[in-house]
């Protein structure tokens, strides 16, 4: 017994917390998702290795869809605003998040970036995640779809080596197919590897450089944009207050 207040000696208790370790991130992601839905924004989390061609795909997407979709982007890199600068040059308002040493974007970073007025009014928001096939897969950002860019130069076995990323993917863009004549890559083996880590494989083979195969990607975006509320119903996208 404690001699001061009679509260009893310290003792051990077991508490069952039973919850997601990333519950705080998940709450923030749900909040982002509500914003996207309320403002009629299609949000894509574009992931992939460094150099997998994410930015090039977006540049080509801007050129093709620019007249029928208002595209904005958030880019994540450890250092520099280079990707954001490339996208701005392609006509996409872009906000760069430099993470310092963090290997992924989280939902809180996205929420903060959404307050950037340059992004307001978008109908398609692409979050170009930090180039990394591991960490970004763990964090929900509030996106509608996860799209993974995988360059043909990465080899057939990448999906088997990084199964979590492909398990979370809704669509895989096999990029840089214009380089295939210079490589010994088997697209059949690559498809097979994807099917072993992605339950419902959706794969488009594209070349942002030549435009080959990009129509399927544009049609996929068009279809999902069409299933969102139109621009009339969406007001100044992302502009919001917190109570």
């Amino acid at each position: 017994m404690c001699e001061y207040c009679g509260c009893g000696d310290p003792h051990r208790v077991s508490v069952d917390l039973r919850g997601e370790i990333l519950a705080a991130n998940d709450r923030q992601a749900a909040h982002n998702r509500e914003h996207f839905a309320a403002h009629g924004v299609l949000a894509i989390n574009l992931m992939g290795s460094p150099g997998s061609g994410k930015t090039a795909v977006l540049e080509a997407t801007a050129a093709a869809l620019g007249s029928r979709a208002r595209i904005a982007a958030i880019t994540g890199d450890l250092e520099t605003e280079r990707d954001a600068e490339r996208l701005r040059a392609a006509g996409i308002p872009a906000r760069a998040i430099t993470t310092g040493s963090a290997c992924h974007l989280d939902a809180g970073m996205i929420h903060e970036a959404l307050h950037d007025e340059a992004l307001h009014g978008a109908s398609l928001l692409v979050i170009e995640n930090v180039g990394n096939l591991v960490c970004p897969a763990v964090y929900d950002l509030g996106q509608d779809f996860n799209v993974v860019a995988l360059a043909v130069t990465e080899g057939e076995d990448k999906p088997l080596k990084y199964p979590v990323m492909f398990r979370k993917a809704d669509l895989v863009l096999v990029t840089k197919t214009d380089l295939l004549p210079h490589l010994g890559l088997s697209l059949e083996l690559l498809d097979d590897a994807i099917a072993r880590v992605m339950p419902a494989p959706a794969v488009f083979r594209v070349s942002a450089r030549t435009g080959e195969g990009m129509d399927r990607w544009f049609a996929w975006l068009d279809a999902h944009l069409a299933s969102r509320p139109g621009p009339d119903r969406a007001h100044a996208a992302f502009g919001h207050r917190h109570g």
């Binding site: 208790v13 919850g19 370790i21």
Partner: peptide, 14 residues
């Protein structure tokens, strides 16, 4: 196999 869960904790309480 996709879990990232906090389960039980043991605390010393007064």
């Amino acid at each position: 196999g996709g879990e990232i869960l906090l389960g039980r904790i043991e605390l010393e309480v007064p």
